[in-house]
Amino acid sequence: MAAIKEGSKAPDFTGTDQNGNTVSLKDFKGSKVVLYFYPKDDTPGCTAQACNLRDNYSHLLKKGLKVIGISTDSVKSHKKFETKYELPFPLIADEDKQIVEQYGVYGEKTFMGKTHMGTIRTTFLIDEEGNVFKVLDKPDTKNQTEQVFEAWGI
């Protein structure tokens, strides 16, 4: 469960995207934002989620939604991921885990019976004022856009 609650102010952050650009949440004030945290570049679930958002990107933009992806992978890893799948939105590298910890999405996970620390897949829908409108704790990687539209009621 994400530490950030619906209705609260989304914590501002600044990070570097796959193209070396500095991206801050405050840059998106006045827009609705789909901020999605994912565990790892180029893995099956993360690829399905990113490609679903890519395939529906023009629809998201038409509805006034901006997309930002964040994982603890490096800028170089994000660039390979973006290039391989032609992703049209910023992927922020959070190698020092500051943003994932700020949003409460870094924690203990179990995979194939083994416990480890990692990013817990979570999507935050942030309104034009920078408030968390909705937290999707269990994003459907193959139907992320549909979940987003349903949550916003659009």
Rank of each mutant, 00 (worst) to 15 (best):
E6S: 13
G7S: 03
G20S: 02
V23Y: 10
D27P: 07
K29A: 13
V33W: 04
Y36K: 04
F37A: 08
Y38C: 04
P39C: 14
K40I: 05
T43W: 05
P44K: 04
T47M: 06
T47Q: 08
A48G: 00
A48Q: 09
N56F: 06
Y57V: 05
S58A: 09
L60K: 04
L61R: 15
K62C: 05
K63V: 01
L65I: 06
K66L: 06
V67M: 01
V67Q: 03
I68E: 04
G69I: 14
G69K: 07
I70E: 01
S71E: 05
T72N: 06
K76P: 00
K79F: 05
K79M: 12
E82C: 12
P90S: 11
L91V: 07
L91P: 04
L91R: 11
I92H: 02
I92T: 01
A93K: 00
E95M: 15
E95I: 07
D96L: 13
K97A: 05
I99A: 02
E101Q: 13
E101I: 15
E101H: 04
Y103T: 07
Y103G: 11
V105A: 03
V105Y: 01
E108R: 14
E108G: 12
G113D: 10
H116G: 14
H116D: 07
M117W: 10
I120K: 03
I120F: 00
I120S: 09
L125A: 03
L125I: 11
L125F: 12
D127H: 14
E129L: 08
G130K: 05
G130M: 15
F133A: 12
V135E: 01
V135C: 02
L136N: 05
D137W: 06
G153V: 11
